[in-house]
């Protein structure tokens, strides 16, 4: 909470300690999150990032404002100072967020080169079309 007014210059601030981004600031969380389609019920309510042992550690809180369970898909994209990706595309990870739950997602960068990141989010009930190949969300529901 201390670093409220911080503009997200990870490479500089991360050495100092945890960087907390509040939803209220709008801009800072939004700059890290890419929602594939508008998410109606799920929201990133908190996001922290710190660099420890040369690795970027992220903790994200996802809040579900609906009383129904929501299926979420997410993945991180790892970037360097210049905005280049330093790691291959991550697999999409499925996550169930229970009704009204605040779900913590933890991640550690898979590479020492990562200094920045983006979080890609997609909820199954979105109407966005993030992926080519016919499927409108990352789940390939072919049978069953």
């Amino acid at each position: 909470m201390k670093q409220r007014a911080l503009t997200f210059l990870l490479s500089a601030t991360l050495l100092g300690g945890a960087a907390s981004l509040q939803a209220a600031e709008g801009g800072s969380i939004a700059s890290k999150v890419e929602e594939l389609g508008k998410m109606t019920y799920l929201k990133v309510s908190d996001m922290r990032a710190v660099k420890r042992d040369g690795l970027l550690r992220i903790q994200v809180t996802i809040s579900n404002s609906s009383s129904d369970n929501q299926q979420l898909f997410y993945r991180f994209r790892w970037l360097d100072d210049d905005g280049f990706t330093v790691w291959e595309e991550e697999p999409w990870k499925p996550e169930v967020v229970y009704g009204l739950q605040k779900k913590m997602i933890n991640a550690v960068s898979p590479s020492f080169k990562a200094t920045d990141f983006r979080l890609e989010l997609q909820a199954a009930k979105n109407d966005g079309a993030p992926l080519s190949g016919g499927s409108d969300h990352p789940a390939k529901n072919l049978n069953q």
Partner: peptide, 26 residues
């Protein structure tokens, strides 16, 4: 025949699949 996203979440059957391998390895 189409190419798909190799990182997409695969839920075709309950058998061990690509997503499981990728998530475990990651």
């Amino acid at each position: 025949v189409a190419y798909g996203d190799s990182k997409a979440v695969e839920t075709v059957t309950t058998d061990l699949g690509s997503t499981d391998i990728q998530m475990i390895a990651e």
